[in-house]
Simulated assay, not measured.
Amino acid sequence: MTEILRVENLKKSYDGFLAVNGVSFAVKQGELKALIGPNGAGKSTCFNMLMGQLKPTAGEVFFDGARITGKRPREIWRMGVGRTFQITGTYQSMTVIENVQMALISHHRRLYSVLPRAWKLYREEAFEFLKTVSMQDQADRPCSILAYGDLKRLELAIALTHRPRLLLMDEPTAGMAPTARVELMQLVADIVSEQGVSVLFTEHDMDVVFAHAHHIMVLNRGELIADGSAAEVRANPQVQEVYLGGGTLFKEASHA
């Protein structure tokens, strides 16, 4: 598989403190890759540099062979990189399908010219994206009454509207019930498999990570200490020390 994202020696310093220190990795096309680590390990800082919200102190980021270091988030988004956030950002006063329609209007650059008749635009296309996340039956429900897990599904549909080749998902299952977490990540895994989208995600739920990620990276104190398969990461003594003080990391089960 070809590389869709390459990160080389990425660093971010705050008054001499290295929040991210020399991180290098790659994400391949069609890969579902997890970035895990304790609180404060540097995961969100790393994500924010990949998407342009933060400027790196040093290092380079390449998307599909093109250097994107220093580009603005909107430019990176236009190139084919999407993102979801820990806290959902839907329009609560709109219906489910209207939220997706607004994302499509933005993607097609028609935001300022068609607002009086926006409710008519791209409705069929929006409905297809809702089908992708199994929310077609809730198309006309107001977002204000949705369960939190459904808001997360809607956010995923919105992120897919510009057909990204790479999707960055920051804590996609945060705040969700255990069953809903598994369902959402299985949905993401299906999208990766069926559409060839690459996904890089951060996550605290280790059952979710080990059940679905093709490969796993571990950050600790801003440094990448492991990058490999679930079995390799589980057996890594340094990772075990970080998480459980030297104990065995996660039970051997169907998550391998």
Results as ranks from 00 to 15, higher is better:
residue 97 I to T: 10
residue 85 F to C: 01
residue 78 R to W: 09
residue 91 Y to K: 03
residue 43 K to R: 10
residue 136 Q to N: 09
residue 142 P to N: 08
residue 62 F to G: 04
residue 81 V to P: 02
residue 133 V to H: 12
residue 107 H to D: 09
residue 96 V to L: 06
residue 137 D to N: 14
residue 83 R to Q: 11
residue 132 T to L: 05
residue 59 G to Q: 13
residue 87 I to T: 13
residue 109 R to D: 12
residue 112 Y to D: 09
residue 136 Q to E: 15
residue 109 R to V: 06
residue 55 K to H: 07
residue 48 N to M: 13
residue 81 V to F: 07
residue 79 M to R: 06
residue 130 L to Y: 03
residue 99 N to D: 02
residue 130 L to V: 08
residue 66 A to T: 09
residue 112 Y to W: 10
residue 155 E to Q: 03
residue 148 Y to V: 09
residue 103 A to H: 06
residue 124 E to I: 15
residue 121 L to S: 04
residue 133 V to Q: 11
residue 47 F to R: 05
residue 68 I to K: 10
residue 88 T to H: 02
residue 147 A to L: 13
residue 47 F to K: 05
residue 66 A to L: 05
residue 122 Y to M: 06
residue 72 R to H: 09
residue 94 M to P: 00
residue 120 K to V: 14
residue 120 K to D: 03
residue 122 Y to F: 14
residue 94 M to I: 11
residue 145 I to S: 15
residue 84 T to H: 03
residue 38 P to K: 15
residue 92 Q to C: 12
residue 158 I to P: 01
residue 47 F to G: 03
residue 99 N to P: 03
residue 154 L to R: 12
residue 42 G to M: 12
residue 126 A to Q: 07
residue 154 L to A: 11
residue 121 L to V: 15
residue 63 F to M: 06
residue 38 P to S: 15
residue 55 K to R: 07
residue 154 L to V: 07
residue 74 R to A: 14
residue 76 I to K: 06
residue 86 Q to H: 07
residue 55 K to M: 04
residue 97 I to R: 02
residue 66 A to V: 11
residue 155 E to R: 05
residue 32 L to P: 01
residue 148 Y to F: 05
residue 88 T to Q: 14
